[in-house]
Simulated assay, not measured.
Amino acid sequence: MGIIKVENIRVYAFHGCLNEETKIGSNYRVDLEVKANLKASASSDKLSDTVDYVLLNKIVKEEMKYPSKLLETVAKRILKRIFKEDALVKKATISVSKLNPPIGGDVEMVTIKMTERRKN
């Protein structure tokens, strides 16, 4: 088993419970960690034998485009799609952070973190 991380994916998106958040938008940071068997790719040196981090980045950016009220919903959608599109991924952990959230205080970011395992 091995780990592939795609960290600090920066996205501008329109998530939130407040009307202003879905109209004005905000900056987000997404961190992703996936576990997969990397033995074959370590020996073969073939992209087809590993988890393509370009695909992971693409999934995150595409799914962040669809507005949701809750970051949990966005994270779950991303995880679901990762497992659907890459059979090598056995476990994935995602953190979705809203930078400078509108919560009436000096807060750098709020983050939700979720982990899923392949069901089969």
Rank of each mutant, 00 (worst) to 15 (best):
S43H: 14
D45V: 08
S48G: 08
T50R: 03
D52F: 04
D52V: 03
D52L: 08
Y53H: 09
L55K: 13
I59P: 01
I59D: 06
V60Y: 00
K61N: 13
E63C: 10
M64C: 07
K65D: 14
K65H: 09
Y66T: 14
P67I: 01
P67S: 08
P67L: 05
P67Q: 01
S68L: 06
S68G: 08
S68W: 04
K69S: 09
K69A: 08
L70V: 02
L70A: 06
L70E: 04
V74N: 04
V74C: 13
A75K: 05
A75T: 14
K76L: 13
K76C: 11
R77V: 03
R77T: 12
R77E: 00
K80N: 15
R81D: 03
I82V: 15
I82E: 11
F83Y: 05
F83C: 03
F83R: 06
E85P: 06
E85K: 15
E85Q: 14
A87V: 10
L88D: 00
V89H: 01
K90M: 07
A92E: 02
A92D: 00
A92V: 04
T93E: 15
T93Q: 11
I94H: 03
S95R: 12
S95F: 05
S95A: 12
S95V: 09
V96M: 05
K98R: 13
L99P: 01
N100M: 10
N100V: 13
N100H: 12
N100R: 11
P101M: 03
P101H: 03
P102N: 01
I103A: 02
I103W: 01
I103N: 04
G104P: 06
G105M: 02
G105F: 00
